[in-house]
Design a protein around this nucleic acid. Sequence first.
DNA 1: AAACTTAAAACGAACGTTCCTTCTTGACAA
DNA 2: TTGTCAAGAAGGAACGTTCGTTTTAAGTTT
Lengths: 209, 209
Amino acid sequence: MARVSQEHLDARRRQILDGAALCFARNGFHATSMQDVLKEVNLSAGAVYRYFSGKDELIAAIVTEVLDTVRGIYERAALESPPPTPDVLIPRTLTRMRELRPATLDDGAWMFPRLMVQVWTETTRNPELAAVLREGYQEVRAGWGRIVEGYKEAGLMPADADADALARTMIAVVQGFAAQIALFGGISEETVGGGLRALMTVPLAEQDA
Amino acid sequence: MARVSQEHLDARRRQILDGAALCFARNGFHATSMQDVLKEVNLSAGAVYRYFSGKDELIAAIVTEVLDTVRGIYERAALESPPPTPDVLIPRTLTRMRELRPATLDDGAWMFPRLMVQVWTETTRNPELAAVLREGYQEVRAGWGRIVEGYKEAGLMPADADADALARTMIAVVQGFAAQIALFGGISEETVGGGLRALMTVPLAEQDA
DNA sequence: AAACTTAAAACGAACGTTCCTTCTTGACAA
DNA sequence: TTGTCAAGAAGGAACGTTCGTTTTAAGTTT
């Protein structure tokens, strides 16, 4: 047997995944050719196809890895007790997205948000991946719903407020800023927090509903 | 001369654009083949290539059309006087996105948000389109910044609040919900508005900064 | 009949993948 | 410790397919 160590196999797999992620973040899944990936990871076709059965499996591996990472980031935020207010929680979540893959692309955009947007488009055309995304989203929504319940317990919100709607809104803010970061480059934590604080100071018009 | 009427030419062009938009919303730009488009619009290659020089031009036409539409939606919202509070303004913006292309995809997602997400990924790999997106974004940001100034004038916000940061945050909410709609299907105006009102009721922790 | 549009076949290029060869590795005998 | 060897790992050319596009022929309108 001339088998190499398991660490070597794992490292190779990781090398391929990282190089592929870089390519995909730059050009998207379908505009990236296998030969682009091969060149990026400095490996031959024979090598890569030993670790992944094909391009689809490579894409699926990246997508699920990104989705797992996203879920982990949200869940870690949901663990804090007492839950920070959104103007603290949301910038912190974005910061974690940068720290996770510190590399920036040529144009200054963070890598991870770029991958997120690419994953969004891919899940819309792959029902299998769409199911994974849906499942993860449900969990995130539930987790952040619990944060909102924490707000209620702390007296920050009326008890009859729509917890799930607020959870979805906070997630939307994260997603939206992730999109802006992917499209226009990084943004400072202060800007995000300041925008949220400004939003939270706008008084609601009295309504008779 | 056997030229066909200008209306016919325009109608053909529109027919191609609409069919292509449907394909692109379903499968993305690069996973959609020209033959997919030809089949969708019931035209042959010779016909389509008379109106567009190639796939890239078709993509560019769709992208710029989507971006123009988005800018129009935001700008129309910015015209209202006095400016509605975000919990009214943002759901209304999303509603307009649905009304503009009322067709829904097979899985219930609205067509326009799907196209938006596809456009986001395409602009990250095409510098020319990225410039168009940046320009439109700047205008939207400025327009919504003026809305925030309106808030200040109406006494809804302290004068020293960061207007641009709030504008970016409101845009992020729209973008984030657009992403959720593209990924998970439509959402009711009430949910979006309710989530925003809940967010706006959270009091800010006293800070000594 | 002339001018122009549409249809359909076909082309070169590029893609993902496979296949066969070469290189490298680690166990084991001496 | 060292040399040998089988088998796993990597390399790289070549394959069939599919892509975007072009070309050519037929049809249609004024």
